[in-house]
Design a protein around this nucleic acid. Structure first.
Lengths: 140, 140
DNA sequence: AGGAACACGTGAGAC
DNA sequence: TGTCTCACGTGTTCC
């Protein structure tokens, strides 16, 4: 734990680690400088994704596992929970609102026996508030 | 795009792809069967993480980019937005509540709720769900 | 003692 | 054109 963590930390702090620093011959064919660049680029990409992942972990409360996969999983659960909660809150709020104004119009849709309401593709909300319940096929 | 996607899809459907299927000599030292297992295990792990990542993408609205990193980034943004929004809504609701000091009606009805709650066992936030101001060090 | 998780370099495709 | 993103196999480290 300590050793690996230290290694990662070192990797975080340190930025440009020259792998080999080849002697680039200055004729037409650059031998392996482009390979070197590719390596460092790829390394950078990896690091960035990891940072993003850790940021995600930091934004989700009560995270216990450090594993990458668990991080994403917890994030998904949390988002779903937030969705549900938000919907509930909104229902409650609208209920309060409708209490003050007597509902003369009753546009009552029949939702008695419709157990399956799958709204797959949502409309996003673009800065507003209303999103839609999103169904995720859990593959756990 | 198509080719790579097809490949990934194929990889999703297909499960056990024997890489080399070495001739395991049945003496004391198993030569590379454990290597083979390690390979398939690693492949499995990778696949799982990817599925998780796609699930995350599906739970976040208005996702445009397919890139792994962007998926996580958008998820972070979305979570932050939800946090803020929730706080706002809650403030609004508490304002309304204080306006009308009537709290006799307390009917919680879940008319159209999924048969299976997402947060089945974990009730993790202590009721109010307001935890802490979360600072994400953005490294964009 | 062996599985789980990780970072790494590399070849290949897509843009 | 080159750069980016990805999956892959492998070595290493920690349970």
């Amino acid at each position: 734990m300590t050793l690996l963590q230290a290694k990662e930390l070192r990797n975080y702090l340190d930025e440009a680690i020259p792998t080999h620093n080849d002697s680039s011959s200055h004729d037409g064919t650059q031998s392996s400088s482009m390979t070197n660049k590719s390596i460092v680029s790829e390394r950078n990409r990896r690091k960035k994704l990891n940072e993003r992942l850790y940021a995600l972990r930091s934004v989700v409360p009560n995270i216990t596992k450090m594993h990458k996969e668990s991080i994403v999983k917890d994030a998904i659960d949390y988002i779903q929970k937030l969705h549900e909660e938000e919907r509930k809150i909104q229902a409650e709020l609208s209920g309060l609102e409708s209490k003050s104004t007597i509902s003369e119009f009753d546009h009552e849709e029949d939702f008695s026996l419709n157990p399956k309401r799958i709204t797959s593709e949502s409309f996003y909300d673009s800065g507003g508030s209303r999103s839609s319940p999103i169904e995720v096929l859990e593959v756990d």
